[in-house]
Write a protein that binds this DNA or RNA. Structure first.
Lengths: 346, 346
DNA sequence: ATCCCGTGTGGGAACGATGTCACAACCCTG
DNA sequence: CAGGGTTGTGACATCGTTCCCACACGGGAT
């Protein structure tokens, strides 16, 4: 009859390298050498140490190791909004690549708040992470982290190009292709829904839109360029206003998946037919776009790969801190579906 | 004319508490007391220390602090697949709650792989996190972490009920409500698409389905219960087989959003009309379900809150390690939309 | 004058893993 | 037997922070 041990040994004290050394009958130094593979360790001793470590369930303390070596194997990831499938997929890609390269990932959803972003950045500095991947909303985070000697990779958007690495997609090309697709179909009144036109991403997509219109000899109508906010509700409201108006556009280019959702909802509420009454193209191919009917034509970006590439870039930067900064541009491609067609005759 | 400093001071060496102490002209102990607010510190000295710390851009090293205090302020979060909006939203909820409670979040996407899960769990032990939230695939992770004295909260599914905390939703009630909704509409041949029926989640949903059938005096047809895999493709294939068959069901209850997507795609490929030819109810209300036409009736769970609640539970557990384990059950509710209607007359 | 107390400060130990010593056993070869 | 290579040892230092204890100082009570 055995007495139940209320609290296992492990709860009271986790095994340390010292415990392993005692169990294996060697010194701590020898355990360290045997486990890491650096330095001398006879094969029978190594065997004994490994067995003792396994039996005790010994797991090295990353904190202590990092403290000594001054080299962390954690990376920070700051994204705007995990509920947006774009950021979720980005994080998924980063997660997989981080795991493959032996990094742990510290993730924070900054909820589109500058305060949360700064707070998270400070936490990452305190953790002494090896590097940070961020979808920035301003240059402050990149600047702050860089000033603390932490490598930064900006993803999707870029505020500190030249001084930090970046991984973005071909925004201008993508936007031009999407708009040109509408122009080729015969559309002349093409609305643009965009988050902003000041940042790199928005600016580039705006430029791509302008270029395609210019190439088609179409004069830009400022009333058709809507700088909608960040949520579906706002986009929907603005779309309702525009599509109810007298001079309704025959096509809409929505510059991200959130705006596209708002426009889509507005179109449906108004009972308009797609693409009969209005054509729709989106930048960023969210899952719902291939599920709705008609399916939405979209500029697809490999978001998962965007996250994975950012981690790769960061890893390279960590290995070579002094190399020139690099901006990687990933390709996008237009997925023509059912939401685009020539405009109806008037 | 100033000379550009190639590498800022911060890169060569981060400021330590010692630097702050020297700058403020006090001892390290005094700096610590002044900054943390624990212990004595004259107001003028505190002032001086704070200014020195701010000027140097001093950020305390979490590693060193944790090492000393043996109390971490990080929590681990292990989710199956961030690309699934369910897990993304769960992670978003966990992230916000963690931030509010002053925890940093270490996240790993285990990609439905047992190996990745174990690997991630070991990394979390190495990091000495304060606790872990996991959407488990077996009991091994919970057991492993518990054996290392790390508090665990199982979310969505539960393998170690009784020994660890859990946060789940009313799976049985939800499934019963969804199925009963179909029964009330007059359906007698109701298919169930489910991931598995052994685990807690799948088992409960299966039971709810059976209960609702029993209450409607409907005999269970085993051919209508499909244990589909984990991806959309598999679910779609199985749905195609079933819906092409001679004895097609008049309604389908898909027990999660992935299965629902597969069924939805199959229905469309076959040119069936919803709800005319077949009604559809889903467990877990994914964003696309309110965007497609007809909109899909679904059992909605507050996934964001699921993640947030799990962090709250974990925090309580960390504060009171010896308290009895608790399983929190969150409510779900049926959102009746357009994909359900009485079966067509035959 | 002595003691006690509250207040403020400094010195040193400790946390866990690892690297670096000097050194001690060995073995084998010449 | 000398010399060199191999293998293992314990002691000590390191990292940044905090805890514990010692001490200093001055005022009030005994």
């Amino acid at each position: 009859m055995t007495i139940e041990r209320r609290t296992p040994l492990s709860r009271s004290r986790r095994p340390t390298i010292k415990d392993v050394a005692e169990a294996a009958g060697v010194s701590r130094s020898t355990v360290s050498r045997a486990l890491t593979g650096r330095g001398y360790a006879a094969s029978d001793v190594r065997e004994r140490v490994l067995r003792a470590a396994a039996e005790l369930g010994y797991v090295p303390d990353v904190m202590a190791r990092t403290l000594k070596q001054q080299v962390s194997r954690s990376v920070g990831v700051l994204v705007s909004d995990l509920r947006n499938p774009f950021y979720a997929e980005l994080a998924a890609g980063a997660s997989r690549e981080a795991r493959e390269r032996g990094y742990t990932m510290v993730l924070a959803d900054t909820s589109l708040s500058a305060e949360a972003e700064s707070e998270a950045a400070e936490a990452l500095v305190a953790l002494r992470v090896a590097g940070v991947i961020v979808t920035p909303n301003s240059s402050v985070v990149s600047t702050y982290l860089s000033s603390h000697g932490i490598p930064v990779v900006e993803v999707d958007r870029q505020f500190a190009a030249g001084s930090t690495d970046g991984v973005v997609v071909g925004n201008r090309v993508g936007a031009r292709t999407a708009t040109a697709h509408l122009v080729e179909l015969g559309h002349r009144r093409i609305a643009l829904f965009i988050d902003e036109t000041d940042w790199t991403t928005g600016y580039e997509r705006y430029q791509g839109y302008l270029e395609a219109l210019g190439a088609g000899d179409i004069k830009v109508d400022p009333d058709l360029v809507v700088s909608a906010g960040w949520d579906v509700a706002d986009s929907r409201r603005r779309a309702l206003d525009m599509l109810r108006g007298p001079d309704r556009p025959t096509a809409v280019f929505a510059a991200n998946n959130v705006l596209a959702e708002g426009v889509w909802r507005a179109i449906h509420e108004l009972g308009l037919r797609v693409p009969g009454d209005v054509s729709l193209v989106a930048f960023d191919d969210a899952p719902w776009m291939s599920m709705v009917s008609p399916m939405v034509t979209a500029v697809s970006q490999d978001t998962f790969n965007l996250g994975a590439t950012a981690v790769r870039r960061l890893d390279e930067r960590i290995v070579m801190p002094e190399a020139d900064s690099v901006t990687t541009v990933l390709n996008v491609h237009l997925v023509a579906r059912e939401s685009t067609a020539p405009p109806a005759m008037i």
